[in-house]
Design a protein around this nucleic acid. Sequence first.
DNA 1: TACTTGTCGAGACGAACAGTCTCGATAACG
DNA 2: CGTTATCGAGACTGTTCGTCTCGACAAGTA
Lengths: 200, 200
Amino acid sequence: MTGDTRRPHTGRRRNEAARRAILDVAVELLGRTDDAPVTIDTIAAAAGVGKQTIYRWWPSKGAVLLEAMAERAGHDIPVPDTGTLRGDLDEFLTATFRRAGMRLTATVLRHSMAEAQRDQHAREQMRAFVGARRDVLRGVLARARDRGEIAPDADLDLIVDQAYGVLWYRILTGHAPLGDADASRLARALSDQAAATLTP
Amino acid sequence: MTGDTRRPHTGRRRNEAARRAILDVAVELLGRTDDAPVTIDTIAAAAGVGKQTIYRWWPSKGAVLLEAMAERAGHDIPVPDTGTLRGDLDEFLTATFRRAGMRLTATVLRHSMAEAQRDQHAREQMRAFVGARRDVLRGVLARARDRGEIAPDADLDLIVDQAYGVLWYRILTGHAPLGDADASRLARALSDQAAATLTP
DNA sequence: TACTTGTCGAGACGAACAGTCTCGATAACG
DNA sequence: CGTTATCGAGACTGTTCGTCTCGACAAGTA
């Protein structure tokens, strides 16, 4: 409570190289074989790192995996701006499906979602990640609404859920791949769906 | 290869009561607390059963859970026949969302899907279960197609994925509940989507 | 240059759990 | 009554998570 202003930071600093190695190795090990037993000991050994270095910075094994996933699955998906909802959705869903459809990324996503059902820390990180991705897509829809392309009372969340729902459902069950054609068809269907409420 | 026709079955028979107790207890334990550690030992003890009795009939812990889930989530969802696609979808999705939205059922579904990512047996059972549920919904759509309500070349699988995608996505992330209103809105959107391809 | 402080890699350790194995008892058949 | 397969019970092994301890090392401070 009293002024802790003295000594803002002393001692050795966090090793950024170790952090990178841990996150990279976690992903790489998942990709080696699909039924690979990715354990903390394996990650630590492969990253040339002590176990305590992992548990000093992450609260659980799932938290490591979730951070690696969020990095890999969230970056480099640009926010589109084609001028039309249909075009924006096509571009966004194609990029998103391509990323998620990559074998390694899909594997990471699958195991991250599984971990999120068991590990409380991972669960919260998954919530944050999913929320962030949803916000981006909802933003695309909101812009279209502001342009007057869709009804003011359209259920944007339900549309978002359909897009990401198809993605996760296919990744988790593996009953069908995520192709460009699927992304385009879904983009068309969802933009039509959003516009339909305009014509009662 | 030679005639094994002698002695088609001797010895004590499988105890059906034990089977029921195991499946019921597995579900019940999952529901007790959400972060409950449901273990094989716990199931065996609560069901008044030896561990070997479980492993004699199921190949893994995940297989037990998946069978319990398939029983609970697949039964008593009637195939609707209202005469219109919109009506059929509304009835089917409302019943399905109600079932999956029940707290206990949702918990079982969540952990089953998680188990399916780690356990090969559970994975195959999940595939079979998901395939069966998809077949039912695809059948509803196919009937509408035969009635001429939707285009012959409509992508039925994508529509099915949108419906079950929303369901699983919400259950696994927990970012929103599965309400009757969601089911009805989705039914309307998907029936419109299927019909839209008719009017180019 | 010494001193303090926090991180480093390494690995021992305990607890929890999945799955196997063995045991004597018991039920369904001939 | 003899054969056979399942039953409940629990000991046992192997794996993994997460904690704890150790001496070494780096980044500031005096």
